[in-house]
């Protein structure tokens, strides 16, 4: 008998392509991303709107939204196997956790 050494998966495109969003959906996402980038840039011009203490939280919030949109839609994490999300989010959470703590040892957050 013979068989291949690698139990090679068939290409997946046909398996999940049907639940991929349409091009129009992608364009809508991109529009949202563009608008958010515009909003972010607006914060730079303080004369337009005074964000006060909300500046940093809202910037971070918009950043997270953009990050999330790209990761879930453009990178298909929303539609793909959750193992991929776990690998990526694992690295992301570890990175954020470790470096936030590392900066804390420099008393960075107290400045």
């Amino acid at each position: 008998m013979s068989e291949t050494v690698t139990e090679t998966p068939a290409p997946e495109a046909e398996d999940h392509s049907h639940d991929h969003p349409s091009d129009w959906a992608y364009i809508k996402i991109a529009l949202v991303l563009g608008v958010l980038t515009g909003l972010e840039t607006f914060t730079y011009f303080e004369t337009v709107l005074d964000w006060g203490d909300f500046l940093i939280p809202s910037l971070l919030f918009m950043m997270v939204i953009k990050f999330w949109l790209v990761a879930t839609w453009f990178m298909h994490l929303k539609f793909d196997n959750s193992i991929f999300s776990r690998m990526f989010v694992g690295g992301l959470v570890l990175a954020v956790g470790v470096y936030v703590i590392a900066l804390a040892t420099f008393e960075f957050w107290e400045r």
Binding site: T6, T8, E12, N81, M87, F88, G90, G91
Partner: peptide, 14 residues
């Protein structure tokens, strides 16, 4: 049930 290469890429991105 997932592709080796894609998994490898995601681990790499992590």
């Amino acid at each position: 049930g997932i592709s080796n290469t894609k998994l490898a890429m995601w681990v790499f991105l992590g």
